[in-house]
Design a binder for these strands. Sequence first.
DNA 1: GTCTATATAACGATAGAC
DNA 2: GTCTATCGTTATATAGAC
Lengths: 190, 190
Amino acid sequence: MVEGAVVGGTPVSAAKSRIVSAATALFGEHGVGGTSLQMIADAIGVTKAAVYHQFKTKDEIVIAVAQAELARVAAVLDSAVAQPDPMAAREVLLSGMVDLAIARRHLESALTSDPVLNRFFAQHEPFLTLMDRLYLVLLGEDSPDARLSGAMLTAAIGGAVMHPMLQGLDDAALRAQLLRLARRFLGLPG
Amino acid sequence: MVEGAVVGGTPVSAAKSRIVSAATALFGEHGVGGTSLQMIADAIGVTKAAVYHQFKTKDEIVIAVAQAELARVAAVLDSAVAQPDPMAAREVLLSGMVDLAIARRHLESALTSDPVLNRFFAQHEPFLTLMDRLYLVLLGEDSPDARLSGAMLTAAIGGAVMHPMLQGLDDAALRAQLLRLARRFLGLPG
DNA sequence: GTCTATATAACGATAGAC
DNA sequence: GTCTATCGTTATATAGAC
């Protein structure tokens, strides 16, 4: 991430983004609750105090990590809606979501399953709006029905990549199968 | 790493099962990492020392809780394979899995997304065998393909019930929709 | 089986110097 | 922006009495 970059509408300093980057890796490996401020500080070679200078609380770091991940999803969604037709948009979105999930593996579900974060996002308007836009592209409609389908599919992709039974599967095979099954789930050809 | 408290068949003391029961509720509400031994002890009205008398470490409690949940899945699976034909078995299993996920809501995904637990079960033979049996009934075949489908479906059900966007949905509606989408996912009629 | 009491370590968080 | 030093709290875990 470049200095002066903007994520989620907030300008990000180099120090801040180093922290977010380290925290992202640690959350994926040890979970949110299993990651301490000390671990984050050690990972980037500074003291806890230096970390606290950038973020007042641990919760702020958790939120920042989650929002950075959300920004990745938003970027994929933006590139999808830029496609000439809804069919192509859906393909780009689906493919991008699978790629994201595989690239991050453990992280996504470590975040979405964190109780604190879960309650936060349940009332976080930008998140809810993003998901609505995403489901609209994915399913072609905005309805309670489409929302459940969308939630199930994203949960399925996120959960499958970290499932104990599939940890031996290589990325390429996982990607191909996830796409195939997601298409079947959506009732798409292919 | 950790040696679990014993699975089904082995008798469990009243004190042990009270701890497991309290821990189950707390893990579902605060996550595994967010639940301390003090919280568990307080919930059943004893001291930490009493808890430690039953379980040498916190990890042992986590494993015991997970295995108790696994036993519920195994019970559903057993009642499914007792059905007269594969079609009926699949229906019973699917219905039972959805019921379990809804009844426990947050718990299932709090457990399956815990990094420590995840690594434990990835090498836990009884778990892997149970999942293989489950996927066989669900999909009618045992193959890498079926495993991914099964993992995706279980992840989808577990993830959907705790998804931020679906927390307002009542149980009956959630159940009906989950069953409908699961059937579509499996390529079943209805 | 449960208690009181305690050991030891880590936690989140802050103050103030540089 | 980073440091040393520290606060107050909580964590896991143990020892020994009842």
